[in-house]
Design a protein around this nucleic acid. Sequence first.
RNA 1: GCCAAUAUAGCUCAGUUGGUAGAGCAGCGGUUUCGUAAACCGCAGGUCAAGGGUUCGAGUCCCUUUAUUGGCUCCA
Length: 639
Amino acid sequence: MELIINGKKGNYPDGQNALDILAGLDGDIKKNALAAKLNGEVIELAAPIHEDGELTFITFEDDDARHVLRHTASHVLAAAVKKLYPNAKLAIGPAIDTGFYYDFDVEEPFTPEALDAIEKEMKRIIKKNEREVRFTLPRDEAIALMEEHGEPYKVELIRDLPEDEEISFYKQGDDFVDLCAGPHLPSTGRIKAFKLLSIAGAYWRGSEKNKMLQRIYGTAFTNKEDLDEYLAMIEEAKKRDHRKLGRELDLFDVLDEGPGFPFFYPKGMVLRNVLEDYWRKVHVQAGYQEVKTPMILSRELWEKSGHWENYRENMYTTRIDDQDFAIKPMNCPGGMLAFKRRMWSYRDLPVRMGELGLVHRHEKSGTLHGLMRVRCFTQDDAHLFMTPEQIKEEIIGVFNLTDQVYKVFGLGYKVELSTRPEKSIGTDEMWELATEGLRGALDEIGVPYQVNEGDGAFYGPKIDFHLRDSLGRTWQCGTIQLDMNLPERFDLSYIGPDGEKHRPVMIHRVVYGSIDRFIAVLVEHFAGAFPLWLAPVQAKILTITDRADDAARSLKQKLTAAGLRVETDLRNEKIGFKVREAQMLKIPYMLVLGDQEAENGTVSLRTRSGKTINGLMQDEVMEGLVAENDSQALEGHWN
RNA sequence: GCCAAUAUAGCUCAGUUGGUAGAGCAGCGGUUUCGUAAACCGCAGGUCAAGGGUUCGAGUCCCUUUAUUGGCUCCA
């Protein structure tokens, strides 16, 4: 069989596989060969076979190869749905990080039972090992074909493609044809392991104004072991869900009585306070002052800031003495007033004013999610006022502070830059200057970042820090927003070296983001097994019999005096039972006291990881605990 | 807000085709004084999310509302 690789003709003898072909190619062509290594095994990927037998080869990294596998699986899903529901209209079906999905317009939503039937049909198609064949058509013929197939969504997609482009399709087996840029696996039999996971509603083209379609999610792997491992991983991840651990570890909860309004219990408050104490410490070091502004402020203020106009629907309001007031959804207007209280000299700048501010927002019911998305939360806010010359340095300062804080917790993060949205206030010049300020700072720091066009705040562009939860979903935590609009609206000024009034530039920023959300991230990150300095209970003293009670009480007193958070368990229970309970509460250290220890002033120390060290002197343990606590270590001293 | 699923004791869950609610753990009361992940016995605990309907009879079927979960949209 003759083939053409990047315009060069070559041979693809029968019986030769992609690996052989790859080995025979030189660098440039090899880069474009259609084969990939997946788990070390080279697999052949779908050759876009033209009717004249011409082949084009493209290479992929492992991730891309998995992508192709999943993309092909989504088309098998579409074929199965079309078989079982001939009236279903096809929308889109891409591969995603964790698998794939396909959107359908069907008369009746899919039921969980339908999912099983679809899965069965997919297995049948895979077993038949149907060939995936690519072909292209000119635009109008492509539209005609999809109209003939009764696929209005596909027609709409083609109409949005560039006019002069050939449209590519894949034919799978005898009768299933789908619009697709490809590539695909050469045949359906290559899908060795897949599973449909869930059904969800999703708007056509992601717009609330459009029809809601039915989306089926699934995942696929090259072998069953990988699939099983993935499914087991999901189950494992569910165990570290902060909503579950929050209840189990008695930290916090969200009750039906207050949807989106979380309760923090004593142990949760310890964690919260540790985070706040640490926050205050690093912010004082970074030259911040702290303020507290009111929770309820007048409607006029929110009109001036623009929030009344832009976020009225999401604000809780109240009336006092026949006047409209709003419960603050943000701290910035209050921050403006706190800055405006006096006259500032350029010598005073930058002014950095922090505030742990409790804000309330009416989030839509369907968006609430444990502590990650709530209706009231504390922002570790700060507003920085500066001259235009200080912008870059201040942004870099905030970035480094955020990086420093995340590192202490061992958290990795993703950086995104969001630019001017459609709904915005301020002049083009301001947006240009602000956006370039952020971009310039990121480039100077040299951190990789993703640009989200049009995703900025209505008053300015922003840099966001995203953290992952246990299931890999990302949540925005830190943010740095350059705001050149509010200083204008609030007529802020400082006196420059020339003795004239000048407009300061403002940065609005958070590091944790929401303390509540950050706690959720931390719980999932550590699976509830916090490092010593964060642990609500750092050590539990367990007695073997009540003969050690006095020794336990005095040890607790000593450790508490040294600034440690210690509890005793003097119950009349067996030591195994006490250990089990402390273990389930993920307490870092258990200090076991029996007759022997009570007599010679030692403890038997047991770590959370199950390691036991007998006969440690109590003073030695105390010193070790204090040192570990002060160092904010992620790893335990005795591990 | 939208699509779907779910809601039974503090927690995790059983409850057959409609016949009037059950287990384990936790809790409480006893007994047990015991060396590193569960001692034994007993007791108590529920307007089956709320409201309405069908039925002789509803935890089971239907409707509405609320909340939760997974997505979508949104997220200053």
